[in-house]
Design a protein around this nucleic acid. Structure first.
Lengths: 235, 235
DNA sequence: CTCTCTTTAGTACAGCGTACGAATAGGTGG
DNA sequence: CCACCTATTCGTACGCTGTACTAAAGAGAG
């Protein structure tokens, strides 16, 4: 038996910064961000806690690093493509990255030094909007709006106690019964007539809001009128 | 001297659950959520750590409690009023509450048992949308969209290293100079021609996106056409 | 073999949440 | 007044955290 410890070492020597961050991301995905400790990370890598400090200055640097890895997973939008398609693709790419790594959303609030992948992502997005002819000001507006929506949606998804299609029932039914027609009638109504319908998946709500926002943005671009063919995407 | 400890006890006996949560919120506001420890909270209340556990089961319950206090600060929308005005007011109320208590945004991701004030807030919001004639489905869409935007905006605001009008310069200028016309040209452009303009405040971006979303929603309501007088609020 | 630089690791410390049980306070009946 | 009971407060201790400091091991060169 080469592995006597319960958590089998995942990678072997030699260590380096990339492996440390990669294992940290993997550990956060598997066991949650709270379980990502220096000691558990070292054990999962088959090394000792203090050895990691040769590659990272402190734990905060690890957290910065894995957030940047998440951004690195998102395909960059291209300034050559149609801005609306590019923004649509980017939004979905970002949401799915944050869905794969839900802990990243909570980390965003406390991170203040963005990594290279994060900066590249932001720059490519801004570049795509500018290339589409949006003014500097409108680009800033659009960017704040889109990112707010995406982050916020991911935050709500991460906070939901259920995840995926038709998984809401077992959590929702007892709650609905507890409050049935009592203090929170509208929540109960939404639960009964929307959330508990077969096939419900909160993730489906993303597309509605995204299209509504993209519709609104395309209407805000002075030269381009609202494309009648594309209009009312949402509904 | 009645106060010999460096951090003066804020409240006196007798203790109770409300005071514990109130002091916890105050401490989180003053010193950040990381500084809110059982020990520091006890000291700020002039008592000892273990005494708090008579009123709360564990620290998580404190965190749940102060998040609910934040929701309790938001004025409830009224189903009697104009839905658009009510949603506008609610959005601003929620954003300013989350701006007063930035740590609350990061907490949302990990909280799974909403308090009474939170439920009341959600129910009143849903009720206002339903009263305006939105279908159950459209209400769910609208709610997910609005909350995503508000949460996401608050998250970005909390993550920004500067806060308030004309405070961006001292942080932004050194960064811009470091990357001037280099790797991230579009970020530099936005910084120079938007962020560094006098009077800039990221918070101002909120209104643009909010109006764009409300415009889009009002267009999505079957009976109500897009109110031409109100249209293009954004820009 | 020795000197030097890179890399790994052991020990220790302060601070965290909190389990457990003891001490104290406050009110009531005798 | 005392005894008793319950409500409330708190002391101690345990296992966990991040990490400062120091030592040791490994690798390559002369």
């Amino acid at each position: 038996m080469s592995t006597s410890t319960p958590a089998a070492p995942r990678k072997r020597l030699p260590l380096n910064r990339e492996k440390v961050l990669g294992c940290a991301l993997q550990l956060a995905d598997e066991s949650g961000i709270a379980a990502l400790t220096i000691r558990s990370l070292a054990q999962s890598m088959g090394t000792k806690p203090m050895s990691l400090y040769y590659y990272v200055a402190n734990k905060d640097e690890i957290l910065d690093g894995i957030v940047d890895l998440v951004f690195g997973e998102i395909e960059l939008p291209s300034p050559a493509g149609d801005w609306r398609e590019e923004m649509h693709r980017r939004a979905h790419g970002m949401r799915s990255a944050l869905k794969r790594h839900p802990w990243a959303v909570g980390l965003l609030e406390s991170r203040s030094s963005p990594g290279a992948a994060t900066l590249r992502h932001h720059d490519a997005t801004l570049g795509t909007l500018r290339a589409a002819g949006l003014s500097v000001q409108l680009t800033a507006h659009a960017y704040a709006l889109l990112d707010s929506y995406i982050y916020g949606f991911a935050l709500q998804e991460a906070a939901l106690p259920f995840d995926g299609r038709d998984t809401a029932a077992e959590i929702t039914i007892p709650i609905v019964e507890r409050f049935s027609t009592g203090e929170y009638p509208h929540m109960v109504e939404i639960a009964r007539e929307h959330v508990l319908k077969p096939g419900y998946d909160f993730g489906d709500e993303f597309e509605f809001g995204l299209n509504l926002i993209l519709d609104g943005l395309s209407r805000s671009i002075p030269t381009t009128g609202p494309d009648p063919e594309r209009q009312q995407h949402s509904s």
